[in-house]
Design a protein around this nucleic acid. Sequence first.
DNA 1: CGCCGATTGATACAATGTATCATGTTACGA
DNA 2: TCGTAACATGATACATTGTATCAATCGGCG
Lengths: 159, 159
Amino acid sequence: MRRAVKARAGHTSEGTLERLEALCRERGQRLTRQRRAVLRKLAAERRALSAYELLARLRPEDGRSTPAGVYRALEFLMEAGVVHRLESTRSFILCEHPDAPHGGQLLICRVCGQVVEAEDEPVAAATGRLGERLGFSLDPRVLELTGVCARCRARSAAH
Amino acid sequence: MRRAVKARAGHTSEGTLERLEALCRERGQRLTRQRRAVLRKLAAERRALSAYELLARLRPEDGRSTPAGVYRALEFLMEAGVVHRLESTRSFILCEHPDAPHGGQLLICRVCGQVVEAEDEPVAAATGRLGERLGFSLDPRVLELTGVCARCRARSAAH
DNA sequence: CGCCGATTGATACAATGTATCATGTTACGA
DNA sequence: TCGTAACATGATACATTGTATCAATCGGCG
């Protein structure tokens, strides 16, 4: 029997579905079976999945899934702000804070792949000021920070 | 006749070649013709180039360049710390501060592609503290920030 | 020269992402 | 209920980005 793990595993935060339904109403779009399926697969992971990993998980349930279909679902979910793309690993992960308006930060453990999402004000403020100083109006994009998480560090210290 | 443009265009900073030569001595490697060629092409641009754009620029001079060769040269230059990879655009750019030890920030204009490199202490400090707070020891990786530069903003404001 | 490690060339292929067009599906109004 | 227009998917093909492998070559040094 496993201990409960924090936020991400196994479910979608309440905000997510609401947000998606609102967006659909607003724009005349639809929260289809395929989009729900992609969302569900992402919600079942604590780490990010590549589009083709997602495809492999979808195929058993729906043999007609295609790369294009997966990418289209992901695009929809990203526009809705409930999924992030990790550029550094070319993969996708469920957003833990779908209601936060500003871009947050993602800390990615390069050993175990775990991703922790943060909304750190000091970081946001510092990058904002840097942008101003250099004349850039920065997109509120999510910042990716890679490193080693506490657990993996402990494990490697213990040999 | 064109006005001089800041740092990046047309030349390699003094630190770069020194650093490469030192690294080669240290590790028994060589600063070969091909590696110099890739460096030169990157030095001629203010924006980042994809590996295949580089390849296209190298082919006229050396018809035997291959993707693998370009990637190998880039890998060498990145290990030496004189070239950065922009994950968000899958492209490569010359480093303006080859001597700065810590990871800096790259501000990328999503309109014109211009890249400005910064070494901002407040940003570095804020991300470092965030990492500590969440138990991550962060890699000194370069941070990518996308947005719109002052010039492109002005241009689009004027219609 | 002849060896040795570093580097390159050549080829093939893997992984990631898109374009296009025909076909389904759904909401909504006549 | 039926038609229809917008939204979404399926199928196919292809573009882009990145690697693996192995033989050939280069450059310095005894």
